[in-house]
Simulated assay, not measured.
Amino acid sequence: MCKIKMQSYFTMYFVHTNFPGVIGAIDGTHVAIWPPDKNREHLYINRKLYHSLNVMIVCDYHCKILAVVANHGGRTHDARVWNSSQLSRHMLNKYEYGRRNVWFIRRFWRYPLLPYLMTPKLNQPAGSPSASYTDCHATARCSIERTIGIWKGRWRCLRKERALHFTPEFAGKM
């Protein structure tokens, strides 16, 4: 990503949420699919007991999708989807080479605790700096929730009620 584009992502989150260095929000969603072959069906049944792909999405503040990882069954935990992505390897590489001022906003329990994934601080006293941080974090994280809502609203076939009629191998490839 070029320097100018990266700077614009920093600016968007900073202007709207007071978080310097945030380049995107990350979250997962399930896309319902038609049941796959019987011998691998168990890999696609999620915790809500329907067949799905576990899709990780990264977006900017204005709901522009920056990355999508859609090659894991619904049974796969979000942390494993993150760990197997090229984005996680890229962020780890940048961090190891001294880049300490770039973050993604994430949910508290779904993704691993890493220095480049910002997490909220739960149960903080009202009015404290930590509570203020958590409020700003929630505001910033709304961008990924809006993005997923817009995405599933525009392409209704991605919703649970309308399962995709593709085999998982086909649905996960570009």
Rank of each mutant, 00 (worst) to 15 (best):
H165S: 08
F104C: 12
G149W: 01
L49M: 15
R89M: 03
L113N: 15
L117Y: 14
W151T: 08
Y44S: 05
D135H: 15
M118E: 06
L87V: 05
L43K: 09
I65K: 10
P112T: 12
P35C: 01
P125L: 04
H137K: 09
N83Q: 13
V102K: 13
C59V: 06
R159S: 08
F104E: 01
V68F: 01
V69H: 08
N39I: 14
K152I: 03
S88P: 02
V31D: 05
W82L: 10
G74Q: 11
T134D: 04
K94R: 06
W109I: 14
F166G: 02
P36F: 11
Y50E: 06
Y133W: 05
W109M: 15
Q86C: 15
R162F: 02
D135Y: 15
T134H: 01
A32Y: 10
V68L: 07
I33L: 07
L92Q: 13
A163D: 00
G74R: 08
T134I: 07
G149C: 12
Y95S: 02
V31Q: 03
N54K: 08
S85R: 02
I45H: 07
R99A: 10
L53E: 01
S84M: 09
R40V: 13
A131P: 14
S52Q: 01
A32V: 03
H51L: 00
I45D: 10
L158S: 00
R110P: 15
W151H: 04
L92E: 02
H165L: 14
K48S: 13
V31S: 09
P112Q: 07
Y50T: 07
D78S: 06
T119F: 13
E161V: 00
D37E: 12
A126G: 14
S132M: 13
N71Q: 06
M118V: 00
R40T: 12
